Computed example of a mutant assay.
Amino acid sequence: MDAIYNKNSAITIDTNFLNGKPAGLGIMPKYDDFFKVLEDVVQKILDQSNLENFNNTLLILGSSVGGMQISEALFFRDHHYRNIDPLKHSIHVLSDHLMQKFNFYDTRSISTACTSSANAIFLAKRLIDVDAYENILVVGADAMTHTTVLGFNDLSVLSSDKCRPFDKERTGMNVSEAIAGLLIQNIKTKDSIELKGVGASSDAYHMTNPDPEAKGAISSMNSAIKDAGLTPNDIDYVNAHGTATLANDKVEALAIETLFDKPYVSSTKAITGHTLGAAGAIEAIISCEVIKRSLVAPQTGLKEAENKNINLVLEPVKKEIRNVVSNSFAFGGNNTSLVLGVC
């Protein structure tokens, strides 16, 4: 969080993925094994929790690429596909690995592109609400892959510089990799932030572009707010999806302008980049920290806002934040919004 408040971007300009062409990417500090980092993150959550183990905990893992990095490593090593194991390519390879390490009660894997871990949180709340489980660990995880970078480059939405969400002259998104986890429980502890509401929609307007009238984004936010028993006027801060693509930012800004009366707004992807399936979990954590610190996360990199009717905050603002909306939107019109707040 200090990096977000201090505007220290995790994005570097890389020329390795696109044959010399520059791309702004968020690559984790050097690691030998993505799975070992995944283990370390989950172990840290366990150590900081009120649990002795995860034997009575459901794991829900959200990922966009799953084990794709394993397949790519084999392909670049062998220069053919014959040694690639489809079972190690799939989404559930990450949750299977954690199951073997930590002996969870059970596991689920969700892959809905950039809403994956947000939808994992959505499912966790629904299961907690009906007392299906006492403890649910939600993990969002996606490794950097050539397939992902090349795919977004082919869609012409990849920026060669650090992204500038909501800026009039924005040039596209930064692909990033990340791992993040949240422990969701049916009890309140001294450090608890409440997951008050969840909402989702599927406008299915286009394979990659959102509905230009923002119907899907408005619907998911409105559903989450109603689920929380709140009104739009109760929302103090919106952690926007804010990818810095031309289509997403225009539509999301319209949705925020339409639904709210100028709460604080920022997209922290200007610092983290777009972590794909991990984004929902990371930004839920950021939203929790904003509430705990009573300090609004600033919008980094903004020179001139395209939509001046939303309250983009350019510096950290000290203010009591009781309720936050955190948005995650994905291809195919898949929209998920979370409401987090003071217990």
Rank of each mutant, 00 (worst) to 15 (best):
A3Q: 14
A3M: 13
N6C: 12
S9G: 09
S9C: 08
A10Y: 11
A10N: 15
I11Q: 04
I13A: 07
T15F: 05
N16G: 08
G20L: 08
I27A: 10
P29E: 13
Y31F: 08
F35D: 00
V37C: 08
D40A: 15
V41L: 09
Q43C: 02
I45T: 12
I45Q: 09
L46F: 09
D47T: 14
Q48V: 09
Q48A: 15
L51I: 08
E52C: 14
N55V: 07
N55K: 14
N56L: 11
L59V: 13
G66Y: 14
G66M: 14
M68T: 15
S71T: 14
F75I: 10
R77I: 01
P86C: 05
V93E: 04
D96N: 15
M99A: 13
F102H: 10
F104L: 09
T107A: 09
R108F: 10
R108D: 05
I110N: 10
A113L: 09
T115A: 02
S116A: 12
S116K: 00
S116G: 04
S117E: 00
V130D: 09
D131T: 05
A132W: 05
L137D: 13
V139N: 03
G140D: 03
A141Y: 04
A141R: 04
A143S: 13
M144Q: 08
H146N: 06
F152C: 11
S160N: 15
K162N: 15
R164M: 13
K168M: 13
E169K: 14
G172H: 11
M173G: 10
N174R: 09
N186I: 02
I187P: 01
K190N: 11
D191I: 03
E194R: 11
V198C: 05
S202H: 04
Y205V: 04
Y205D: 00
M207C: 03
N209M: 11
P210V: 03
E213P: 08
K215D: 09
I218S: 06
I218M: 14
S223K: 11
A224L: 12
L230A: 02
T231G: 10
N233P: 00
D234Q: 07
D236E: 02
H241Y: 10
H241R: 00
T243P: 02
N248S: 14
K250N: 12
A253V: 07
L254C: 01
P263N: 03
V265E: 05
S266I: 03
T275R: 00
G277T: 00
G277R: 00
G277I: 00
I286M: 00
S294N: 14
A297C: 10
E304D: 03
A305W: 04
A305I: 07
A305Q: 06
N307M: 06
N307I: 07
K308E: 12
N309W: 07
I310V: 13
V313T: 13
L314S: 07
V317E: 11
K318P: 04
I321P: 04
R322A: 07
N323F: 05
V324W: 03
F329G: 02
G333F: 03
T336D: 01
S337C: 06
G341R: 06
C343A: 13
C343L: 11
